[in-house]
Amino acid sequence: MIKATRRKSKLLIGMLVVSLAVIYLVVTAARGATAYYVTVAEVMEQGPSTRPVRVAGEALGDTIAWNTKDNVLSFDVVDADGVDARILSVIHHGPRPDMLRDGASVVLEGRYTDQGVFEANRLLLQCPSKYEAP
């Protein structure tokens, strides 16, 4: 019986250690992986920064330019809610996503550079939902 209880406490200590390790892992990972969403206006007001941010906006169809030769994509986005009329120019080194078209909601991950351009490392486009036609 004593042996069993000792075993039980051993198990409990083991579980505690494991869960603490997991919590530590979660907290540190979360700290490094969260980024605030900012609006187009906020990005431009804050000015050039080295800190990466996430911007959600709406793509303007006429401005989408895809340079196949140099593999550079550029386009403009505006605030999705239409509150602010300011336009943010975006460049991205990478292929043109299929879903990038006029009015597409796009999430940009990257930073605002000295040249007044937002350099996006990652583009997230809203997928055509599995459940809805466009």
Binding site: L25, A29, A30, G32, A33, A35, Y36
Partner: peptide, 18 residues
Amino acid sequence: RRQVGLSTDFFNRTVVPL
């Protein structure tokens, strides 16, 4: 009261080792 995004790094650093 601010929108936050969590990048995939979070999952790669926690779920994958587990």
